[in-house]
Design a protein around this nucleic acid. Structure first.
Lengths: 202, 202
DNA sequence: GCACATGATTGAACGGTGTTCAATTATTTT
DNA sequence: AAAATAATTGAACACCGTTCAATCATGTGC
């Protein structure tokens, strides 16, 4: 032991995050513990606390990475469409697909609660804001006749909606058969909302 | 101690649930523990496990009561309206208001996860189904031209949407000022969706 | 009125958790 | 080679959920 300088702090941080993500992916959030993560990277608990403030901090970093991946995926898959409507719908589908593929990691983003009163740091809030911004940007070309505020609200409503479907689907509280019907539901929510929002003339 | 027959099992169950709800309301889900609940009702841990299988079982019962209260509130507040559209919108507003008043108890319903693979018992799933049924029933008079299946899907989409707004609002991930704006958002989601769903002719 | 059986209740025990920090060990500097 | 420095450990603390042998109050039969 005592492998001083085998890894830099940043390396240890990276290793810990990767190990924790692996545990969460396979065993769920409850399956992760400081000792388990430490053991997985060949260190002991103490080292983990040298690199993260506490487990909440570690989870926040995991969630940030999850949001990054999700954002990348959505951007990437959106690139395949040029039609504005298709681009917006694709965002919803990408979101659902990501949640379906990585349920535990995705869940953690919205399940994790900081201690009472404490709120996520700015760098984290920005990652969330970026998701909403993506929706807004995709909505804009479809709603030229609407104000920026209206678009902002519509994006929030739309995204919350897709998110809600995702949550209920993953927690098995939607009595729907499979992912396909979840995609149908998402499509229904988005297209009907847009029909109502943009106007009847399309 | 050893207050045999001071309370029946059912009474202990009721006391424990009430005590646990109180703790959760004030300290959040993480603040609750078997020992705390037991102490609050003047018994010890062992007794709690005589009356509940485990903490998951206790939480399931708490959540069932939360769903009951929510359902009652929604029914009650809906009774104040006769216009079908107003009745449906009221459901959403009641939901948001309940979540805002009892955030911790409401959160627990959707945060709580049973151990991997295990799913909630039928008596619990029925309580969730009852919520969706309420939405369906309120949606029906507004969509006479739609099939039962379409109404079912629309109710699911609508409700998931409102639920998503609720979640994001409570976890402070929606950058909205207060409850009023959440209500606005809910209104936007529901009315635009309905406009798109029912058709443009209204 | 008394012993016995019954079943409600306890609380210590087990293996886990997050978190801290004095002690140890390896490296760097002098 | 000695001293200073920094990385790493792992025992300790106070909690957690859960179990279960031991205890104690009660109801029953004599």
């Amino acid at each position: 032991m005592a492998r001083r300088n085998d890894h830099s702090r940043d390396e240890i941080k990276e290793m810990a995050l990767a190990a924790a993500e692996k545990i969460i992916s396979t065993e769920g959030a409850k399956g992760m513990s400081a000792r388990k993560v430490a053991a997985a990277i060949g260190y002991t608990v103490g080292t983990l606390y040298l690199v993260f403030d506490n487990l909440d901090d570690l989870i926040l970093h995991i969630n940030a990475r999850t949001l990054d991946r999700l954002h990348d995926l959505m951007l990437e898959e959106q690139a395949g469409h040029s039609d504005p409507m298709a681009r917006l719908l694709q965002l919803g589908h990408s979101y659902i697909r990501f949640a379906d593929r990585e349920p535990h990691r995705w869940e953690l983003v919205f399940e994790h609660r900081l201690p009472e009163g404490q709120q996520p740091p700015d760098w984290f809030r920005e990652k969330v804001a970026r998701m909403f911004a993506l929706v807004e940007a995709s909505l804009e070309p479809l709603a030229a006749n609407r104000s920026a505020d209206e678009i902002k609200q519509a994006a929030a409503a739309l995204w919350s909606g897709v998110h809600g479907i995702c949550i209920l689907a993953i927690s098995k509280q939607l009595d729907v058969a499979g992912v396909d019907s979840v995609q149908d539901l998402t499509h229904s929510l988005m297209s009907h909302y847009l029909k109502g929002f943009v106007g009847c003339n399309f």
